[in-house]
């Protein structure tokens, strides 16, 4: 994960991504994506939006989740129809 997302030009050191997570050792990574999305929003709810360490989860779920899923969940949260516990 790039520490600075807007940094240009990119270098080889910027090639970083979400690490292997032993909670999700299988081919099915659906829950790695979803759990990171939940963790990010729980983290922000508890520690406030300015708390930098929360962004770790955000980088994980942006790397892992299909963008369409994230957009769908964001809409659901705005409309109050998100089924997860944040």
């Amino acid at each position: 994960m790039a520490p600075a997302q807007d940094k240009m030009p990119l270098t080889l050191e910027d090639l970083k991504t979400a690490p292997f997570d032993p909670r999700f050792p299988n081919q099915n990574q659906t829950r790695y994506c979803y759990q990171s999305y939940l963790d990010f929003h729980r983290c922000q709810r508890i520690r406030g939006e300015e708390y930098e360490p929360c962004n770790y989860f955000k980088r994980v779920f942006t790397s892992i989740c299909p963008n369409e899923w994230v957009e769908k969940w964001d809409t659901q949260r705005e409309e109050g129809t998100f089924p997860g516990n944040i």
Binding site: M1, S63, P66, N67
Partner: peptide, 9 residues
Amino acid sequence: EYSDFKNIE
């Protein structure tokens, strides 16, 4: 989708 840096789709 390449989302590790900026979002590329």
